[in-house]
Simulated assay, not measured.
Amino acid sequence: MKRATIRTTHENASAIAAALSPDNTPEMHMTVTDDTIELTVERETTGGLQSTVDDYVVNLTVAAQLTNNPKSESNNE
């Protein structure tokens, strides 16, 4: 079994983790402590591990951007 652990810190870690958790599989374990998100992923193959980590990092980046920069209301007048 291949394993990777990713730790990131965010002012709004709980909100980001909540946005990411629906995509987690049983082989992914996420914890949030204060401002830190820790994700451990286990996969049978190196390729599977790499794909899962890549997907997580992309989703994490988007979630962090959206929680830091919420969409402002536009005025179409």
Rank of each mutant, 00 (worst) to 15 (best):
M1T: 10
M1D: 02
M1R: 09
K2D: 00
K2I: 01
R3H: 02
R3K: 12
A4T: 06
A4D: 01
A4H: 03
T5M: 06
T5C: 03
T5N: 02
T5Q: 09
I6M: 01
I6H: 01
I6R: 03
R7E: 06
R7W: 00
R7G: 00
R7A: 05
T8S: 05
T9L: 04
T9A: 10
T9S: 11
H10K: 07
H10N: 11
A13Q: 06
S14R: 15
S14I: 11
A15P: 02
A15G: 10
A15F: 11
A15T: 12
A15L: 15
A15N: 14
A17Q: 06
A17I: 06
A18K: 15
A18V: 08
A18I: 08
A18S: 13
A19L: 14
L20H: 04
L20F: 05
S21V: 10
S21E: 15
S21M: 14
S21F: 07
P22T: 09
D23R: 15
N24G: 12
N24T: 14
T25C: 12
T25N: 10
T25K: 15
P26K: 14
P26F: 11
P26Q: 13
P26Y: 09
E27I: 09
M28N: 09
H29F: 12
H29P: 00
H29A: 13
M30I: 09
T31H: 10
T31K: 14
T31L: 11
V32P: 02
T33S: 15
D34P: 02
D34C: 04
D35Q: 14
D35Y: 06
T36K: 11
T36H: 07
T36W: 04
I37R: 05
E38P: 00
L39W: 01
L39E: 01
T40Y: 05
T40M: 07
T40F: 04
E42C: 08
E42Q: 12
R43Y: 01
E44H: 10
E44C: 01
E44T: 13
E44G: 05
T45Q: 08
T46Y: 09
T46N: 07
T46L: 13
G47I: 09
S51I: 05
S51F: 10
S51H: 11
S51D: 14
T52S: 12
T52Y: 01
T52L: 06
V53G: 01
V53I: 11
V53A: 02
D54K: 15
D54F: 09
D54R: 15
D54A: 14
D54Y: 10
D54P: 00
D55A: 15
D55V: 07
D55N: 13
Y56R: 03
Y56I: 02
Y56E: 03
V57C: 08
V57W: 01
V58E: 10
V58M: 08
V58G: 00
N59C: 10
N59G: 04
L60E: 04
L60K: 08
T61K: 12
V62N: 02
V62A: 07
V62C: 03
V62E: 03
A63M: 04
A63K: 04
A64P: 00
A64K: 10
Q65P: 00
L66D: 06
T67F: 07
T67V: 13
N68P: 00
N68Y: 03
N68I: 00
N69Q: 07
N69I: 05
N69V: 04
P70Y: 05
K71V: 09
E73C: 02
E73N: 05
E73L: 07
S74E: 15
N75E: 13
N75S: 14
N75I: 14
